[in-house]
Design a protein around this nucleic acid. Structure first.
Length: 439
RNA sequence: GCCCUGGUGGUGUAGGGGCUAUCAUGCGGGCCUGUCGAGCCCGCGACUCGGGUUCAAAUCCCGGCCAGGGCGCCA
């Protein structure tokens, strides 16, 4: 009967088949990448997660039944092949498998909706419609191997620095945080929203005495942006730490990114090679550019910018031209930062907010937070918001809130930097943008 | 949301008022014992949708939808 594994189990991944195994019988499992039938000899490339191995069937030397089965193969079908490893200078990795038994586990329909061998390239839209096939390409799966390593390093880093991993709700009641548009949803008889950020919750956690927390989770923004670096659902790496200020958490962020770069360079060399991307590890801390100086730099590049304005796209590009790699932008004007950002004591028009940039791409933003109840209420009102709407948040500031600071990193944007891709859709398995809601 | 460009076989494209709609890849069939972007032969398969102009529209015009690029928005 076709399609059942039965007692068969894979003995080797393709990358582990080498001449040490010659004359040994092994079982490989994977997808048919290519079939080259020369009549008297048939070559089949079987692909698994990390590579490919050639199966060679000289039609007069292998069983007729096997030849018949191979001639029934269709590209991208799933097969299990039992066979003997043979050394051959003519085979792609110097070894090939002479099949002795074959199972076709699942036939792929034809024609395929796109070509995983990339003889004919497909556009991102076509690729995303058939993402499962797209991901069979090594240059695509490599992006997600790197992303996985990044997330692992980040988790390890936080655990090594005595952070507690938390989960905050994504179903939220309030649309009053200001700024970003939220996705409204029906919550029984009420209206609710998808969370735009764990910001208020991780701050409440500072009042819990948990001291240092982090969360890696999806956030949702209902903005109608349509660019290469925005999505409506993204993964945010968030942290918040008590008894720290902006300078402290900038150091933590710098160290974390540094560790991510080191680990990826060390552990993902194959993936980086496939992507033809190199990772440079800066020798010292990332440079710090004060907002005041950024305004000057942008203007000196011929892009008009007044003090107090947020960076326009042209401004980001002008800065990105000047600064190579990662850098911090600090001392942002209070006016364009949210209510929970601590103003500078000497000059309240400036704040203790910072961004981490990579060239012209914003990767992270963070700040020392306001921990004083009265000041927080004042700042909420100043932003034109109603403090009553923040009751459950403000309550945490009335009974012992320590000074604290934190930041959030866009995990998908960071992955763009790590993989050298220029479209955020490339770094998200199933991206959600202005129009795409499937798959 | 705005501006620009576009939508042709499964995929990626050429063409651009009337002719069998180009090419590659693919798919189906055939030949071939060392392929590795295999090769050769035969065949299959397409003009985004709606309206308009015209004797005639895939081609021109208007609108919708969708896509690519840029911008805005992004506490």
């Amino acid at each position: 009967m076709q399609g059942l594994l039965k007692e068969w189990r894979r003995t080797h991944y393709s990358k582990n088949v080498n001449s040490d195994l010659k004359e040994k019988e092994i079982i490989i499992m994977g997808w048919i990448h290519e079939i080259r039938d020369l009549g008297g000899i048939i070559f089949v490339l079987v692909r698994d997660r990390d590579g490919m191995i050639q199966v060679t069937a000289p039609t007069k030397e292998v069983d007729d039944e096997i030849v018949k089965q191979i001639r029934n193969f269709r590209k991208e079908s799933v097969v299990a092949i039992k066979g003997t490893v043979q050394e051959s200078g003519k085979a792609p990795n110097g070894v090939e498998i002479i099949p002795s038994e074959i199972q076709i586990l699942n036939l792929a329909n034809q024609p395929l909706p796109m070509d995983p061998t990339e003889k004919v390239k497909a556009e991102i839209d076509t690729r995303l419609d058939s993402r499962f096939l797209d991901l069979r390409k090594q240059n695509v799966s490599s992006i997600f191997k790197i992303k996985s390593q990044m997330l692992r390093t980040v988790r390890d880093f936080f655990y090594n620095n005595e952070f507690v991993e938390i989960n905050t709700p994504k179903l939220v009641a309030s649309a009053t945080e200001g700024g970003t548009e939220l996705f409204p949803i029906t919550y029984f008889e009420r209206e609710a929203f998808l969370g735009q950020s764990p910001q208020l919750y991780k701050q409440i956690m500072m009042s819990s005495g948990m001291d240092r927390v982090f969360e890696i989770a999806q956030i949702f923004r209902a903005e109608e942006h349509d660019t290469l670096r925005h999505l409506n659902e993204v993964v945010s790496i968030d942290m918040e730490a008590s008894f720290m200020d902006d300078i402290d958490v900038i150091k933590i962020l710098n160290n974390m990114i540094q560790q991510v770069l080191i680990d990826i360079k060390t552990n993902c060399s194959e993936a980086l090679e496939i992507l033809e991307h190199e990772i440079e590890i800066p020798e010292c801390n990332f440079p710090i550019v004060r907002y005041d100086d950024a305004v000057d730099i942008v203007n000196s590049k011929g892009v008009e910018m007044e003090w107090g304005e947020d960076l326009s796209r042209a401004g980001e590009k002008a800065l990105g031209d000047t600064m190579d790699g990662f850098y911090f932008l600090t001392e942002w004007p209070s006016e364009i930062k949210p209510f929970y950002v601590m103003p500078n004591k000497e000059d309240p028009t400036k704040s203790h907010a910072f961004d981490l940039m990579y060239k012209d791409l914003e990767i992270s933003s963070g700040a020392t937070r306001v921990h004083q109840y009265d000041l927080l209420v004042e700042k909420i009102a100043e932003k034109g918001l109603n403090p009553d709407a923040f009751k459950s948040y403000l309550k945490a500031f009335e009974y012992g809130m320590p000074p604290h600071a934190g930041w959030g990193v866009g995990a998908d944007r960071l992955t763009m930097v790590l993989t050298g891709t220029n479209n955020i859709r490339e770094t998200v398995l199933f991206p959600r943008d202005r129009r795409r809601l499937t798959p």
